[in-house]
Design a protein around this nucleic acid. Structure first.
Lengths: 118, 118
DNA sequence: AAAATCATGATACGTATTGTAACATTTATG
DNA sequence: CATAAATGTTACAATACGTATCATGATTTT
């Protein structure tokens, strides 16, 4: 219920001060401090700027726990006529909230391929 | 800049009225209408309830355009010591914002495997 | 097709939340 | 341990929110 955003952790990881990040995003340091301490909630625009900057999803940013993979109903996926670009768009691998590059994705998919288990 | 949430579209897809969805989520119909028309912005808790209900990310829900896969720096991924469960956690395939089930994911990964192109 | 019903959009206002500046406290450094 | 740098906190004006209510639009019924 009471989320803790991961802004502070992400910022620390990059060795930025509140003031530096605030300037980069065009917001005040006080506001950023409030966000990190969960006293204030950034609006969508700021959320997006933060997510873009750190290359994470908003879900990750606000500390939303990951969803489970089952109990879902996707009737409309044309699984057998997926084009390569469709698949490319679907595959978004992340590690601790961070998107993998194309290269990294390739490597992981190769492992999947070898293990042949999923 | 000015996002349009996909709440209305997702709700319509399920054939729900504003009142029905509002009741399911424990919010007022007026509030929901405001969210759909981008006159008000739901708080994190409501955002999460909506995302959980529709099984989509918050990013998708608020209409954030998808991120690109390149220009990223993930130095810390232990690619060669990934356990199967690690990979499982990483693989979150989506189609129009909706998470794929394990079965569907298997199928798509099988296609990837055959095309052997990614 | 008019009346009635249902669904959604819009407004106004009391309340709650936000942003900012200023001050306080904590942490790092010479 | 004194100073500076970084972060935390408070108070208040400005903004945004939730709700009730009314307005409009869309279906249904007869």
């Amino acid at each position: 219920m009471s989320y803790y955003t991961r802004i502070a952790a992400l910022r620390d990881k990059r060795g930025l001060t509140q003031e530096e990040l605030a300037d980069l995003l065009g917001i005040s340091r006080a506001a950023l401090s409030h966000y990190e301490k969960n006293r204030r909630k950034p609006d969508f625009h700021t959320l997006t700027k933060l997510s873009d900057f750190f290359n994470v999803t908003i879900d990750y940013l606000i500390g939303r726990p990951p969803q489970l993979l089952d109990n879902n109903v996707n009737d409309h996926i044309p699984i057998h006529s997926l084009k390569e670009e469709d698949i490319f768009r679907m595959v978004e691998l992340r590690w601790e909230g961070l998107l993998l590059t194309t290269d990294e994705t390739k490597k992981v998919l190769n492992i999947v391929q070898k293990k042949n288990q999923l």
